[in-house]
Design a protein around this nucleic acid. Structure first.
Lengths: 189, 189
DNA sequence: CAAGATACGGAACAGCCATTCCGTTTGTCA
DNA sequence: TGACAAACGGAATGGCTGTTCCGTATCTTG
């Protein structure tokens, strides 16, 4: 791959994240290309469709989480390890408007593109959950597949809080409260 | 209001719900009008913008919930009354693809349109929550504003389950499990 | 039953957007 | 350094979609 091509590809990805954060899930390709300082043609040489771009962003998100999870494995207390990972994932998402908007832009095609990395992450979550089960700190009926369910619920609330902040005022969708309840409900007793 | 106008208005609303369920949040006005057997002009005489249509659907949803909540007040056990209402709201949403998709189509303008009815419902939820607090069955820090937060989290998962069912397969976003955890975490101990 | 107020229909408009195409430029390597 | 494969730019395409406009039809009331 030629050096300029590699550079452009990275630049497109960076800009896409930035514009996703600024303009929401319906960013336009033209906009991304222009801001990245390339023509649309160049965009399409790197990503066959918009879905592929979103898919690639998804891949990177899954990889990031999969890498980060190792840090939490090292925590000795299994409950602490599990909750710290969930908290960290949620706080990262809350701090990252691009990620929040990205989820609104994920089509089945984009998800399929990232499926491999999704499953890899999933496997690692499963291990964290298994540790929680073995230590008897997690409800027995809790499954690794509940992790994306929780994240999805939190993400939707972050989005709702943003979108309706002005009209709903203070009583914003407070995802932190929801997370507290869920984690409380998920702990073995 | 002329009889045919009233009839058309209802028909448009009905069709909008049906198409929202079938075709998702991005139904087209032309489609709604054609299916309702009216011209687009007629649509726009009844609803100045698409947001107004969504707003009206929101209003009806809020009113429906506000009416239903009375049934749950009559339940003697305060915990049962609260959880039964939440369960009922969730099951209704799960059974109603139009409602799920509607939430994706709600803009701030649409929300503002329905704000009065939203607040009216909110007030009633507050009473149910107050009863739970007085009886000591609800966590003290639980607030009425957590109700929309919970519903939002559940709705997002229903949506995700639909959208990604084919690529994600069995491990679907299971909102019922999430709800179980949340309610468990929300109960006073 | 007639007159006019009310409502209707749908072609046309305007703007948006993903994607394609091809002539031009640039990086690389012998 | 020169030749050519690899990349680039961006105008153009095609399709979609909310909204407007105005000539026509329908309901209602006296």
């Amino acid at each position: 791959m030629r050096a300029d091509a590699r550079r452009n590809r990275e630049r497109i990805l960076d800009v896409a994240r930035r514009l996703l954060a600024d303009k929401g899930a319906d960013v336009q390709i033209d906009d991304i290309a222009r801001t990245a300082g390339v023509g649309v043609g160049t965009f399409y040489r790197h990503f066959p469709t918009k879905d592929a771009l979103i898919g690639e962003l998804l891949v990177r998100k899954f990889r990031d989480r999969a890498e980060q999870i190792d840090r939490f494995r090292e925590i000795e207390d299994p409950w602490e390890a599990f909750t710290a990972f969930v908290h960290d994932s949620a706080e990262k998402m809350a701090a990252d408007a691009a990620e929040q908007n990205m989820w609104w832009a994920v089509t089945p095609e984009a998800m399929e593109y990232a499926l491999g990395d999704r499953n890899a992450l999933f496997e690692r979550v499963r291990q964290l959950v298994a540790r929680g089960h073995e230590a008897g700190v997690l409800r027995e009926d809790f499954e690794a597949s509940d992790f994306p369910t929780i994240m999805c619920g939190l993400g939707a609330n972050m989005q709702a809080a943003r979108q309706h902040a002005e009209v709903l005022g203070d009583e914003r969708h407070d995802w932190r409260r929801l997370l507290e309840y869920v984690l409380d409900g998920v702990r073995a007793r």
